[in-house]
């Protein structure tokens, strides 16, 4: 059994991954209300809306919660222990989960931290993934 950690890319989410390849964060928006949403849908999840358009958003946000992996569940990430995942409320209103490097270090993103979501390729040939990095004041 393959242990690839590649995401499924298809017609519904391709703008997100095309943006990733360019280092841009592109999310679906409700055309009627202008609100960003996640995950991708062919129809706006907001009752007043229907049509969907994709637009770039500001990759800044605030960490709402985070976890730290103390044991491996995937070969692709086993060498990165301990690593974290942060749930980030983007300033545009949507929430995304992102990888966190070395979560035990002082200043690592945790609940309440202001962060930027950056695209990083962690392994050669692998997909770009979102990594939450603290915004330094």
């Amino acid at each position: 059994m393959s242990e690839s950690a590649d995401p499924i890319v298809n017609d519904l989410n391709r703008p997100f991954w095309d943006g990733a390849a360019e280092g841009r964060l592109i999310l679906p928006h409700c055309a009627a209300t202008g609100a960003a949403f996640w995950p991708p849908s062919p129809i706006s999840p907001y009752p007043a809306g229907r049509a969907v358009e994709w637009r770039e958003v500001d990759p800044h946000g605030t960490v709402l919660a985070s976890v730290i992996y103390r044991r491996p569940f995937q070969k692709a990430f086993a060498g990165r222990l301990p690593y974290g995942i942060a749930m980030v409320a983007l300033d545009c209103g949507s929430r995304l989960q992102a990888h966190v490097h070395a979560p035990d270090r002082p200043g690592a993103p945790r609940s309440g931290s202001r962060v930027t979501l950056n695209w990083e390729v962690l392994s050669e040939g692998g997909p770009p993934i979102l990594v939450a990095t603290p915004i330094l004041n």
């Binding site: 995401p7 919660a65 990888h99």
Partner: peptide, 20 residues
């Protein structure tokens, strides 16, 4: 779960929700 960012196992979501 979001396997491509390293978020595997049902335990992860439960951990995130508990932290929240």
């Amino acid at each position: 779960e979001e396997g491509h960012i390293g978020m595997a196992s049902p335990v992860a979501g439960a951990a995130m929700a508990l932290d929240l």
